[in-house]
Design a protein around this nucleic acid. Structure first.
Lengths: 250, 250
DNA sequence: GGCTAAGGCAGGACTTTCAGACCATTTCCC
DNA sequence: GGGAAATGGTCTGAAAGTCCTGCCTTAGCC
């Protein structure tokens, strides 16, 4: 008690930024999380227009929530025009076709754009490394096909972007980690909100798709270092574009 | 209406694994999240024994929760022996000294160990890339000092691991992204739970620290490709060790 | 017509969280 | 010594979210 229990560290340890430990703990409600999850999947095109969702009694079981909670979420997405319900024997809840126009990104998201890009950088590069180690030839073929699809879609940004999302989520699927797939989906959702309202010249899309093509080659060669480099360059390029259009921090 | 609205994609799009979209949505409660956050920070040594937490009325404000909710969490951590409360004017809530022995990893976490490692791989490699681009000389000096500390601690795993955590969290701090710092803290917490109950021969720790040293050199050179490669090798090494000790999937 | 599968709806119980007031203890300062 | 101040400890009632359960309505199929 009278003597310090342990010797002082040889080097003065930095006092540690406690802000990280004591940052606000904001639990989303089940309702909010469900709206977010389904809404993102719809906006990303992972659930294309016309898709029929599982029946409510089935879906609430899979999501692990009560049917009333699920219905709150479905109702909310119905009111925003993303979902449409049909009653009766062959009824169900369908992804609306056409989809409503997207909202401009929220102030909140705009303020966080550097963090979103940083998160994306970490995730995409790491996923590229793992994918290069683990992707099967069949999975790589699928990715290669998506690249060819994108090549034909450079004139139609909405289509291009949907295929682009499939590509990146597909990359995450190559890792076999459900956490990474979920993280990739969430990140792509944030990115879509950020970039969907800016212009996308064909040249830019073509250049990005060239990177995709090179990435696929790196995957085929199981060259994770090259995959990491290509991916970091691509994310970097997006960051530079956004940096020129969006307000910087502060 | 009578004709499919859009031409079929040239390549059959994979049906998309809907499991990712419809996976269970499990919202942690504010209470659970608080216990998790503080407990992890304590177990990782980010809040060393003897540290005084902010007063309850201040802390609940910073965490954005009600005082009663915070007190539930503090009480829980007190009952497990991680915290100790003192009343009176100069009182407060303190990180217990000594800390209670750690519990063995839960069945749940053990079952998820490949996912934890994959998440770590993605995060650490991505963070390494960003850190190599952004780390200031002063920040790198701090990291280098931590490496020297670890070199002296190879015989005492508990100390070594605490410094190791500081190193990796410090790397995340170099990115300037609070999301990445939070993710790194959470991931290191899971890793600690996984690896704390296995043996750590000095040779292994020394080899790992050599990787740290090489990484610091790569940071100094702002060589993100090399940083990524070194980091991926290190995470890979940990995965191989765990693969030999823990049950594989299924 | 009757069965069935789907969405639509309503009520009640349970849990979590919040907000605020007040109590008990210790220390500082006049 | 005595009061002020700062801290943890306790209690209560309200509010919100969630769950469970049952029942209704609609529409297709036999």
């Amino acid at each position: 008690m009278s003597v310090p229990a342990e010797a002082a560290p040889t080097i003065a340890a930095p006092p540690l930024n406690e802000d990280a430990v004591f940052a606000p703990v904001r639990s989303q409600t089940a309702f909010e999380e469900t709206v977010e999850r389904l809404g993102t999947a719809i906006k990303l095109g992972l659930l294309p227009p016309g898709t029929r969702l599982p029946a409510e009694r089935e879906l609430c079981r899979r999501l692990g929530i009560a049917r009333s909670t699920l219905r709150q979420a479905l109702l909310a997405l119905g009111q925003t025009g993303h979902l449409q319900a049909m009653r009766g024997r062959r009824g169900g809840t369908f992804v609306a076709d056409p989809q409503p126009p997207g909202d401009p990104p929220s102030e909140e998201l705009l303020a966080q754009w550097p963090e979103v890009c940083d998160t994306r950088m970490a995730l995409e590069v790491g996923v590229a490394v793992l994918a290069a180690q683990r992707a099967t030839p069949a999975a790589i073929d699928v990715l290669a096909a998506l690249v060819e699809d994108m090549e034909r879609q450079v004139a139609d940004y909405a289509s291009y972007r949907h295929t682009d999302v499939r590509f990146h989520v597909g990359l995450a699927e190559c890792t076999g980690s459900s956490r990474l797939i979920a993280a990739m989906t969430a990140t792509q959702g944030e990115m879509t909100d950020l970039i969907s309202h800016i212009s996308h010249p064909e040249e830019v899309l073509r250049a990005a798709n060239d990177q995709h093509r090179r990435l696929v080659r790196a995957l085929r060669a199981h060259d994770s270092a090259r995959a990491a480099r290509i991916m970091s360059e691509q994310v970097e390029a997006t960051m530079h574009i956004l940096a020129g259009l969006l307000p910087s921090r502060g």
